Amino acid sequence: MRLRTKPVLCNYYVTYRCNAKCGFCDIWERPSPYVTEKEVEENMKALKKLGVKVVDFTGGEPLLHRDLDKLLGIAKKYGMITTVTTNAMLYPKYAERLKGKIDMLHFSLDAATAEDHDTSRGVKCFDLVQQSVGKAKALGEKVDILYTVTPENIGDIQQVYEEFCLPNKWLLILNPVFDYNEVGENNFDKEAFSELRRWAKKPWVYLNGGFLKLREDGGNHIDDPICKAASTTLVISPQNELVLPCYHLGTKSFPIQNNLDTLYHSDEVQAVVKQEGKLPECEGCVINCYMQPSFAVEMNKYFWAALPSTIKYNWLKGTWKQLNLS
Rank of each mutant, 00 (worst) to 15 (best):
C22E: 00
P33W: 04
E41A: 15
N87I: 05
V297C: 00
G79C: 12
E141G: 05
P308R: 03
T113W: 01
T262V: 14
C227V: 03
W170V: 09
L128N: 03
P151N: 11
K93L: 07
G79Q: 08
F57K: 01
K201G: 05
T15G: 00
A200S: 14
T82M: 14
A296Y: 07
A88G: 01
P167L: 07
A111N: 08
Y94R: 03
T251P: 03
T5H: 05
T310D: 11
N259L: 09
C285D: 10
S231W: 00
D224I: 06
E152D: 09
L174T: 02
A114L: 05
K53R: 10
A46M: 06
I145N: 04
N186M: 14
S132I: 09
F303Q: 04
I256V: 13
S132C: 00
P92W: 03
V133E: 03
K317P: 01
F254T: 14
K135F: 04
M291G: 14
T319S: 10
M291W: 05
P255N: 08
S253T: 09
N11D: 08
Y147R: 06
S120A: 12
L207A: 11
D267Q: 15
D156P: 14
P238L: 00
P62E: 05
I157G: 05
T119R: 15
V129T: 02
Y147W: 09
V35A: 13
R121Q: 03
K101Y: 04
G100D: 07
P203S: 09
P280L: 05
Y206H: 13
K213R: 14
Q159E: 15
S32Y: 02
Y161H: 11
F178Q: 10
R4C: 11
V235K: 04
L166T: 03
K77S: 15
G318A: 06
E96P: 13
T83H: 08
P245I: 07
P203H: 04
C246F: 12
V297Q: 07
E276T: 14
I102N: 11
W204Y: 15
L207E: 08
I27A: 07
W315H: 09
N87S: 07
G23D: 00
K252T: 11
R215N: 12
G277K: 02
V14M: 12
